[in-house]
């Protein structure tokens, strides 16, 4: 009974991450130039060609990871990929926050959940790099735990060559 419940919660958390990634990727894919502008606003020292490449590929990495998580295929690798993404996001938002940049994090299109210009104050908070930093830390922790748990379970379920087969 306990195992079934924990299985349910693991699945639910995996789907939560997947839905978040789909939301993020659609927001970026639907308006790539806005996403590129958001990346430029971070004022990183990387050349524009690298940032453009990032703007082109990052949404697809998010989307592919989300689809793999939903379909429960290559789950460990998809979670590790997500973990790397969230760590990169933590570094990006953290440095922007530390430098006092008043920019939008460029993470999500809030209008997709009905937060239009009418809710400008809520938008400002949700899009701020400080909020994004803490959100990314939370999700990095969650994904890290899911990844570790998945690898552990895969190891336990795989037959060990040292044990005699029945």
């Amino acid at each position: 009974m306990k195992n079934t419940a924990s299985e349910f919660w693991r699945g639910a958390l995996r789907y939560l991450v997947a839905v978040l990634l789909i939301w993020a990727s659609i927001s970026k894919l639907a308006n790539p130039t806005d996403f590129l502008a958001a990346i430029y606003a971070y004022q990183t020292p990387f050349p524009q060609s690298v940032l453009k490449w990032l703007a082109v590929t990052l949404p697809w990495v998010e989307l592919l990871c989300a689809l793999l998580l939903l379909s429960n295929h290559w789950t460990g690798s998809a979670l590790l990929c997500c973990l790397i993404l969230f760590v990169v996001f933590i570094v990006a938002t953290g440095q922007a926050w530390a430098r006092g940049l008043h920019i939008s994090c460029g993470c999500f299109d809030l209008s997709l959940i009905g937060l239009g210009p009418k809710y400008s104050r809520v938008q400002a908070v949700l899009e701020s790099v400080s909020f994004a930093f803490f959100r990314n830390v939370f999700f990095a922790g969650l994904v890290g735990w899911l990844w570790r748990d998945t690898v552990k379970r895969e190891r336990l379920s795989s037959p060990s060559p040292s044990l005699p087969l029945n």
Binding site: T57, L58, W60, A78
Partner: peptide, 11 residues
């Protein structure tokens, strides 16, 4: 494979 597919799809 995930990264390569993302690159190809993105481009």
């Amino acid at each position: 494979a995930i990264l390569a597919t993302s690159c190809i799809l993105g481009l």
